[in-house]
């Protein structure tokens, strides 16, 4: 597994932790433990996402580096093609 895929797996895991904490909090919205978990994973997720986008291109519009000459958003492979 190369570094790009390893970083992407980390992003997938961290964001999934945010989803899990968030779904729980939708109904238990005063649970301090879950809130702390959410904050912890959010911070790690944002760091990992920023690092990925700096090295390998955007995951969303917000991650596009508009200073480049090309609109990097269109560059494949796309997620459904099985190479990422």
């Amino acid at each position: 597994m190369n570094e790009k895929i390893m970083l992407l797996r980390k992003i997938q895991q961290l964001h999934f932790m945010m989803i899990e904490a968030g779904l729980f909090l939708d109904n238990q919205n005063r649970c301090c433990e879950a809130l702390a978990d959410f904050e912890k994973y959010k911070k790690l997720y944002l760091e990992a996402k920023a690092e990925y986008e700096k090295c390998y291109g955007p995951l969303s519009y917000e991650g596009v580096n508009g200073k480049c000459e090309d609109w990097s958003w269109v560059q494949g492979p796309w997620p459904w093609e099985g190479e990422c």
């Binding site: 958003w73 269109v74 560059q75 494949g76 796309w78 459904w80």
Partner: peptide
Amino acid sequence: QRYSMPYDEAKA
């Protein structure tokens, strides 16, 4: 329709 589109610009 995205899945069978062979060109990156059109996928985007």
